[in-house]
Structure formats: C-alpha cells, structure tokens
Design a protein around this nucleic acid. Structure first.
Length: 570
RNA sequence: GGCGCGGUAGCUCAGUUGGUUAGAGCGAUCGACUCAUAAUCGAUAGGUCGGGAGUUCAAGUCUCCCCCACGCCA
C-alpha cells in the first residue's frame, strides 16, 4: 500500500470561485484522491482557504464586517460549496489558523538563523490620518500614463500599467479618503531565494516527468532577466500572521505581518496539523517530515498555471532553505484556463457560471463529469452550453444511465428483481472480459499518470462495452428460445453495473453510490481481475431498479442558462 | 515590444524519439435492433494537419520567417 499526500491550491477567501477555478485544481485533485483511496492506498487530501492579504481586508470592509469574522463566514460558505461538489478533503483548513501562525513564524525564524533572510529598507506611502502605510490597493490616484482617476497603487485598471504608489497624481487613501500622505521609510524582510537558485534549478531539472507547462514556467522564472529575484515576505498590514522569529519578537518588525504568499503554502503543512487537532487523524508529521515516517509518501500538488511559480520556486525555496527534513513535492499537476463561451470567466461582469450557481441548476455529477472530461490539460479549454448539453446528455444519460436502466428493467420483467441463475459463458463473454481488462488497464494507467481527459475517455469506452455486449447478444431475443443463456447474459450485465459504479466513483460519486445501492451490495472492491469481478453479484441476490440516474438537459434550459450567465458586456 | 502555451475533420480534442492509406468522441447521413431515458449498436461521409521556405529517401512531427488566438511580463 502506497501513501499519497495530495493538496489542491488553496482558494482565496474573497468570494465564490467559478468553474474554471474548480477544474483548475480542486476537482482534479479530488479525482486523484478518490482514485487512490479506491485502489486501497492511504491518502491525506488537504485543502484550505487562503485568507490573508489586502483583498480580504477590503472585501470585509465593503461588507462592513471585521476581517476575521468575514473570513470565518466565507470559509464556511466555501466549505459548504466544496461539500456540494463532493470534494473529499480530509480536512479543509484555514491559512489564518493558529497552527499556521506558529509554523509560519517557525519557518521564518529558521530561515533567518541560516542566513536566508535579509532586511531591506524601502519607501512606502504613509497615511497620517489612518495611522498606517498604504500598500497596493489601499491607495488610489490619477494615473500618470492615461489620466484615469481611480488608478490603484499597484496598477491602473484603465490602461493596465504597473504603478508604484509614489507615481500617482493626487493620491488618496481608499480607507478614509485622506490626502495628507507622506513617504516614509519602512523595513521589510526578504527571502534570499537567489541564494538557492542552483539548488532549485537542479531540483527542477531532476523532475523529468513533470508536465511541460509546469517546468517551462519554472525555468523561465529561474533564468529570465537577472534570474530568480529575492522576494519581500512582509507587509505593513494588520491582517495576517505577525512577524516573529519563531516564538521570539523580531526587533524592528513590530506591527508587521508576513506577506500572504509566504504563509499560504505553509498552510499545506499546517493543515495536516489542523487535521490532527480536529480529531480526524493522528501523527501529522508522518506525512510531512521525512525523518518521521514521510519518506515513503508521494506528494502531488494540483494548481492552475498562475500558481506554478510559487509552487516550483518560492515554496520549495522556503522548505529547502531550512535544511530541515520537510517533504518536498514529488509531482506538480498544473492546468491551463477554462474559457467561457469564447471569452474569460469574469467575476466583475458576472460572466460565466460560479460554483454556487452551478449547484443550483444541476447536481454535482453533471459538472464533475463534463469539467473533468474537458480538463484544460494541454491548452486552454472551452466551455459552451451546447457542448455541455450534448456531452452530458450523451455520456451520462444515454450511455451510462440508460445502460443501467435497460438491463435492470429487462431483468425485472423477465426474471424479477433478483440476479438470475443458470447458463454459462461462451466466446462472447470471454471476449467481453478480455476487452474490459484491456480497457481497465488503460484506465488505471491514465489515472495513475493523472491524465484526466484520457482517463475520462477510457471510462466512457468501458461504459460503451456494456451497451455493445447487450446489443450484440440481445438477451431479449435469446430469452425466447434459451432462457438459461439469457439469464447468464443478464447476470453478467447486472454485474457490470457494480463494476461501473466502482470505476466511475472518482468522477461521479453520487451516481456511483446510487448504482451500488440499487445492486444492494457492500462490495466496492476495485475490479482488478475482471473475470472474478463479473461474478461478484451472485445468482439469487436481490436488487432494485433505480430511478433514472441522469436526466437530460433540455433545449429550453440550455437557452435560459445561456442568457442568465452571459453577464453584462462592456 | 519580450517571453510562454497553442493554431489538426462542422464542434471539443488525441497524435511517443520524423516513417506505410492523419485518429477519437460529438454532430451529419444511412442501416440494424426494440430490453431501455425517441435510448442503443453498426457503417459511411468530412481534413492540401494556420501560411511560406528549408533540412531529409521521408515532416502534423525538425529549422527559419510570417499570420492568428490566449496568457505572463516590461
């Protein structure tokens, strides 16, 4: 039995994510976690909310709530939606947890001890009225390039130019509107990533099996321009993890917090501790410390391509820099973007489907199947309602759902709701078992390699084999002259339902559970040996005819949703 | 402007280290079947592989130039 540590990129606390975010990390991570569990491996699957930084503070202010309260509420909402999509996290943690506070401070302290932290004095805009510095989005003014009046401290939303707060004309605080701003010196900590450049490069080079998308992005950051740059890991903010050197105060850093990108990945580790502290497991270090049992763990991360630099460089630098035996990632699966009907998903314009809305209109399996079978692995992928409708109707309702329906109903009418006895295999059955075995091995190969689209295509082909078998052997015709053989054919087909349930569960867990329940079995074992698995449901076992597993999406619904989610064009 | 990922049948996508008639699913057309959610199964038709030049006995697959889309950065 192998051990798999699996993490999904942690979604930012601010707002509900869209389907592109879902397929970019959490959903494929869940697929992989469910698959590895089904194969009998030990899995720790972790995710969390990323709660620090200015966007959280601003969103809380807009909602008129203290930021801690806002984050707690949003965490619950995201947890609920994740549950709605059946994301099977062993723990859904929070980067604001006490565990992450301690661990982040410990990492910083350790990095300082080994000389990988430097202090840098820089100039920042300070608001006298607010009594604080105004980083990034806390300051607005007129853009010096295009004259846009609401340009932010870090970027102009009109001309997209990157800005420094000190560039702005007539700057003011977005908190109070105050204009009595001055430039003050402030001290910040930098992680000396550049010191680790060679180690990182060697490590990346050793990962021959990583997706091109992952390594090409990492290498670009390593070699582009002057190479990997040292990175500021602190901010003049209130909301965040206070800067401390382990348990000790950090002279000169009073009132400052760690930058969100420093503490967020450390939450992957802290989350395991939260998992244990929540009573869901024991000995979290067994997953994260190679000196405490984690040397046989295979660690796989899932993320969108925008997160790759942090996971291939900054976070590994944090870990490698400590010289402590923390587990490094073994495989990074990164995804491109999902486009919505020829454009991008857009939160501000309400364009595209968001996770809560998706669950309002259809059950999770519909979305899981379509998104996973169209995962943006090799390039950006495209969501269109027409595609969604035809694919879901065909694959789920016609190929799989109807298969279950046709065989259970046929059996009920001829033999009753009992797996019928009698008859013996002929060449057709041997051939079916051989074909299923071939395809199952291929399916396992794609799932092990996290080739999501190919795995979905193979699974679908496995479903089709059942329909082909019924069509070619026509038990409804056989029954008229040879009821014994018809009974054998039906018994075999009923067993396919159980097998399909087990194989399909990582993609469509709800439908799989219904199929298992209808077959009235507890046997969810992986059908490693198909010849054995096709006899798992013995003659005489009762079953029930389930309701249709999937309904079809109508043209009217498709048109309605197309309009509803089109958003406002600019 | 620099860089990155792409541009393959109507649609969504596969195509290992260059090698016989370029593949799948959907959609379309035709046929079979009637157990089933007007479902299923089979067959057929669709591509000068973005454009051009080059290397080679041989290029979708390598090199160069150009065009288009998306993204990142300055």
């Amino acid at each position: 039995m192998a051990r798999h540590l699996i993490t999904s990129a942690i979604p930012y606390i601010n707002g509900i994510k869209h389907l592109g975010n879902l397929i970019g990390s959490q959903l494929p991570a869940d697929l992989y976690a469910r698959y590895q569990r089904a194969r009998g491996h030990e899995v720790l699957f972790l995710c969390a909310t990323d709660e620090h930084g200015t966007p959280a503070e601003l969103a809380a202010a807009k909602a008129g709530k203290p930021v801690a309260e806002y984050c707690a509420e949003m965490h619950d909402i995201q947890a609920q939606i994740a549950d709605g999509f059946r994301l099977s996290f062993d723990h859904f943690g929070r980067s604001s947890s006490p565990q992450n506070h301690k661990l982040t401070q410990a990492f910083a302290g350790r990095l300082a001890d080994v000389g990988l932290i430097k202090e840098v004095t820089e100039e920042q805009v300070y608001s006298v009225a607010d009594g604080r510095f105004l980083p990034d989005r806390y300051i607005e003014g007129t853009c010096p390039n295009c004259g846009f009046e609401s340009a932010r401290g870090d970027q102009c939303d009109n001309c997209t130019k990157q800005l420094d707060p000190t560039d702005l004309i007539n700057p003011h605080s977005t908190i109070s509107g105050a204009t009595d701003l001055e430039v003050r010196e402030t001290k910040h900590l930098y992680l000396r990533q550049s010191e680790l450049k060679n180690d990182l490069a060697a490590w990346i080079d050793s990962k021959k099996d990583w997706p091109i998308l992952t390594t090409s992005i990492a290498k670009k950051w390593l070699t582009d321009g002057d190479g990997l740059q040292d990175r500021g890991i602190t901010r003049d903010l209130d909301w965040g993890i206070p800067v401390k050197k382990g348990d000790a105060d950090w002279p000169g850093m009073e009132g400052k917090v760690f930058y969100v990108w420093f503490d967020a990945p450390i939450e992957y580790i802290a989350c395991a501790q939260e998992w244990e502290d929540a009573g869901k497991g024991t000995d979290w270090e067994r997953w994260w410390r190679t000196d405490k049992g984690a040397d046989d763990v295979r660690y796989t991360q899932f993320m969108g391509k925008d997160n790759v630099p942090f996971h291939t460089l900054s976070f590994p630098a944090t870990i490698m820099g400590t010289n402590e035996p923390w587990k490094l990632v073994d495989y990074i699966k990164s995804f491109n973007y999902l486009n919505y009907d020829g454009g991008q998903f857009s939160t501000s314009r309400g364009r595209g489907v968001f996770m809560d809305q998706a669950l309002e209109i259809l059950p999770p399996d519909y979305w899981r199947w379509w998104l996973l079978s169209h995962a943006p692995e090799s390039s950006d992928a495209e969501f269109t309602w027409e595609n969604f409708q035809t694919d879901v109707n065909k694959d789920l309702a016609d190929v799989l759902g109807n298969f279950v329906s046709r065989i259970t109903k046929f059996c009920r009418s001829k033999f009753g709701e009992i797996v019928p006895a009698g008859g013996s295999y002929g060449p057709a059955e041997e051939q079916l078992i051989a074909d299923l075995t071939t395809r199952l091995r291929a399916y396992e190969g794609f799932m092990d390699g996290i080739e999501v689209r190919k795995a979905a295509a193979e699974l679908r082909a496995i479903w089709v084999l059942g329909n082909e078998y019924l069509q070619a052997n026509a038990p409804w015709t056989t029954f008229k002259t040879d009821p014994e053989t018809a009974a054998m054919q039906v018994r075999l087909a009923l067993n396919l339902i159980r097998i399909y349930a087990v194989l399909s569960a990582p993609f469509i867990p709800d439908a799989a559970a219904e199929m298992i329940a209808a077959m009235q079995t507890q046997d969810k074992d992986w059908p490693t040996d198909i010849a054995v698995a096709v006899a798992a449901l013995p003659a005489g076992q009762s079953f029930t005819v389930p309701d249709n597993l999937f309904r079809k999406i109508t043209d009217e619904e498709r048109e309605e949703w197309e309009e509803r989610f089109a958003g406002t064009r600019d």
